[in-house]
Amino acid sequence: MPTLFAVVTISFFLIRFAPGGPFSLERPLPPQIMENMIRAYRLDLPLWRQYLDYLWNVAHGDFGPSYIYRDFSVGQLMMQSLPYSLQLGTYALILAVLGGVAAGVVAALRQNGIVDYLVMSVATVGVTVPNFVVGPVLSLVFAVLLSWLPAGGWGDGSARFLLLPTIALALPQLAVFARLTRGSMIEALRADHIRTARAYGLSRRAVVVTHAMRGALLPIVSYLAPCAAALLTGSVVIEEIFGIPGVGRYFVQGALNRDYTLVMGTVVLIAVFIVVLNLVVDILYAQLDPRIRHD
C-alpha cells in the first residue's frame, strides 16, 4: 500500500511537468475553446485539489475519463484490454519458462558440448535481437510468404492468431530463462549434496530432477516476478506489430498524448502487478528454500 501510494503520487506530479497538455494538438485549439475543455475536465482547479480528487476517486475504484479516448473511461479501457494482455502474456510466460528451463537444463547437462553451444547461441540471439525485429520477420515469413497464419489481429482468439505474437513476446524472456537455468544448474550440479546423492548411488535422473533442480530454481523464481509483470501487462511493441488490443500501448500512448488519467491508470495497474507478483515470489521462495522459511 505505501508503495502504491508513493507510485501514484510521484507519477501524478511527474506527468504534469511534461510540456503541453492533453488538448494541445498539432493543430491547436482556439484559446476560448481550450478554456471550455479545460473547465469540462476540471483541469482548471489547483493541482493539489486535482490530486486529492484523483486519490479520492481511485480509492473508490474510479480512474476517471480518458482525455483522449473520449468514448471510454480509463476503467473501461483497462477492463477491455487487460484480458487480451493476460491471455497472451500467460501463454508467453508458460512458453518462456518451460522452454527456457528445459533448454537451460539440457545445456547444463551437456556443458561445453555441441548442444550447449547451440542452445546458448540461440539464447544470445534471443536476448540481443529485439522483438520489433523478430515480430515482423515471423509475420512476413509465416503470413505473407507462406500464408500459413494470419499476419495480425486477435481474430477469434484461436491458436492461429496467437501463435506468432506468443512466440515473439516469449522469445527474449525464454532466452533469459535458458541462460539463468544453465548457470544455476551447473552450479547446483557441483554442490556437495549432489555429489553425496550421486555417491549414494541415486540415478542421474533422480539427482537432477529432485535435488539439483530445486536449488537451481531459486534465481529463476526470483526473475519470475518482474518477467511475469512485464509479459502480463502487455508489450506495446508486440501489440502494435500484431494488432493486439492489449493494455501495453496505453502506457506509451497515454504518456505521448498527455492523457493524464490513462497514464495514471496504467501506472497503478503495473504497480499492482509488480507488488502482487513479488509477494507471490516471496511465498514460492519460502516453499523452495527452507532456510528462508526459518528466518
Binding site: 515482423p136 509475420s139 512476413l140 503470413a143 505473407v144 500464408s147 494470419p150 499476419a151 495480425g152 489481429g153 502494435e240 506489430i241 500484431f242 494488432g243
Partner: peptide
C-alpha cells in the same frame, strides 16, 4: 503500425 498494416494487406486480410 504502418508496416504491420502493409503485411496484413499483402496477406489478403
Amino acid at each position: 503500425d504502418q508496416a504491420a498494416a502493409v503485411r496484413r494487406f499483402q496477406a489478403g486480410e
